[in-house]
Design a protein around this nucleic acid. Structure first.
Lengths: 224, 224, 224, 224
DNA sequence: ACAATCGGGACCTCCCGTTTCT
DNA sequence: AGAAACGGGAGGTCCCGATTGT
């Protein structure tokens, strides 16, 4: 029945017509970009729509309101992003310390591959998880719970890995692995924040490399 | 049109008496509080006015616009605050490493003394400098320059102190003092961010103490 | 939150039924009226809304901002209005001089038919095109270009007509038709301005008739 | 008593200190400029103050409110200005027609001598009297009465002159001198309005010269 | 005479969300 | 599923003027 309406200008229609999955993804991506640039509160639905060409009707069809859209960004974009960069490389690790050092050394490069957002280098926008955490955790429980859950996973992956390292006699047995994982995540977050605040790519890279190196040396001393 | 209302409540009058200095300070403080809770963009001038009882006319008289008010908050409140907590205690230092460790150990306590803001513990609102940096550095050059200047001073105080320690043979001579200062500031910032994101005082304290301890131990290894 | 109020006044509904075309026209008309009374700068969007019963959301939907609303008033209301009164009657002219004289003699009557605006006689508000030109031409290029385009058309219609009259040996061949058209439009504009400034209907009519008569006599002398 | 405060930075103080006449004049001139650029309603007291360096206290000391300031502009600046350009040259006239023609021919030059206002050529801002008349006559009786009084004087000077010309047998006896004076003033006003609307100095001059010439020729035909 | 402080309102912009229609 | 119309409200800016202080 629906497809009877044959009079479809092809490209136009092909793009615009009924592609719910793609539409939803497009909105999500645009929302993510807007939020990276202006924060959640500063993100404007109108600009998100302008980025996508989608209309307000479509947006509110897929997401009940701005808040849920924000939640979806965390769940479907930010969490996987954090996982890919920081957690996944740790899973098939043989030596946790060396893996962590390796992750640190390559993360800057891997993050640099992320596409620019609104003409700004992704690196200069800092860690999307931390950005949201700092802005929204005190204001909204939904965001707070989500970001804390992700941080919890992140720290747990590291502590699990360190624990395994202790079992394999690669890591000092006296080490409080959970506390250490927390420190590692904290320092990474701090480094990205310091990089972001410079708003200058060379300075940012300098900060990130400098801090990475310091952290890597710190890890070196945790060996058994 | 004249308001003959002779029945003057004293408090009313006491408040309304011309007191430009106090008015300006009150606006500034209210603005600071609002910004800590909602960020700069989310801060509402109306709410700032409501906090102070000052009217729009007065605010507009003392600060040209929201942006300049924000700048004043950085210059007149945040910078001294950072200075008092992190820089000033370093100045009469005898041994830089011990001073830094001492600062770390006492900073949580000192920051806890800060008055609550809108019913929220100041600690759970994180570092005001980092908050502003993360939100506004990419959006406004005025904020970017201000926060970067403060961070620069902060790092320089630490590196100066470490350099003096090298001269006194208290600190390893091979140490890159500037890079190390950067790492210290970065880690402190990261720790406060992680504490904030929990939005729970006990967890926050746990994070801060844990990270402080780690950083203190790291510093221990920098001794000559 | 739901407004269950079942007692629907019919009129309410009749008004509130979606009718974008009508809504847009209503806004435009109200804007025109406000602008005639208070000028463009003095026109208040709130008052325009009050005139129509339309809400801010609807207005913002149909017109991006006040400026574009103003432009639309020029393009869609003022230009046709000028055309109907001054240009259209010239098109099927047989003798340009007689046509112009005729237009002058009847224009006052035709303009008097325009509905009052905010309780004020339309005539006492002068020429809407000149009003806007005088206020906005120095302030905004968009308005300047629009009003100048209309004046250009107006003068061209007259000069075309005079030229045709020269071909038909009804108008002096030595006449500079463009210059003359300019003088005619200029004098008409001046007359309406003088009428408006009196803010008294009888005086205004006296001015308009007096000037019309003078101009008609002047035209008489342009005959071949 | 007052002059005891000897510690006066000379230039600074000399300028700022107590010169009521000069202050009042400065405010008036700045108000005139602002009103020429933005109209009376659009004129901002703040900008007027900025133009002069005077403070609000001084302004409201000399003028009760914005309206009275506007009235003063009309009475003390615009009226003399109109008088100088259009009326005064008529007084010692020997032949009214030739005088009027002469005034027309020289007025553009004389008006061009007026200083620029806010970077805009005075000519491109049109006739200040007509500007105010068109904007404010329908809105405020005070303005309406003032501008009408000036126009009345202007027309009367011309009609008096023409009447004298009739007595001297220089002007047609059948002429309705008052009506004619009205037409002359009206055409002058129209010409300046058309010049202004172009917002281009060459075009404006073309309009003014063209219309002047037409009006001069018209006057030629009024000779006895 | 002039300066600084303060009062509060009006304005346009912009925003998020609802409702109706295709 | 998507598009368009519409509802209100809040936000920052700016403004005129009143008040108080030299």
């Amino acid at each position: 029945m629906k497809k009877i309406c044959i009079l479809t200008g092809m490209e136009e229609k092909a793009k615009r017509k009924r592609n719910p999955k793609a539409t939803k993804k497009a909105i999500l991506k645009a929302a993510f970009d807007e939020m990276r640039l202006h924060g959640f509160q500063g993100a404007s639905l109108s600009k998100i729509l302008a980025r996508t060409g989608v209309t307000k009707g479509a947006l509110f069809h897929h997401y009940d309101n701005k808040l849920n859209l924000g939640y979806a960004v965390v769940d479907q974009l930010i969490e996987p992003l954090i996982y890919d960069i920081w957690m996944q490389p740790l899973e098939q690790s043989i030596n946790p310390i060396e893996s962590l050092q390796n992750i640190l050394r390559t993360s800057v490069q891997r993050m640099s591959n992320h596409a620019d957002i609104g003409g700004a280098k992704s690196l200069l926008l800092g860690c999307p998880l931390n950005q949201l955490a700092q802005e929204m955790a005190p204001l909204d429980k939904g965001f707070k719970d989500r970001v804390n859950r992700i941080y919890y996973h992140w720290q747990r992956e590291i502590s699990k890995s360190l624990l395994q390292g202790q079992r394999n006699q690669q890591v000092q047995l006296t080490l409080d692995v959970e506390n250490t994982a927390m420190f590692i995540v904290s320092s990474i977050s701090g480094a990205m924040a310091m990089g972001k605040r410079t708003q200058s790519l060379p300075q940012c890279l300098e900060v990130l490399h400098g801090c990475s190196e310091h952290l890597a040396q710190y890890l070196e001393q945790l060996r058994a």
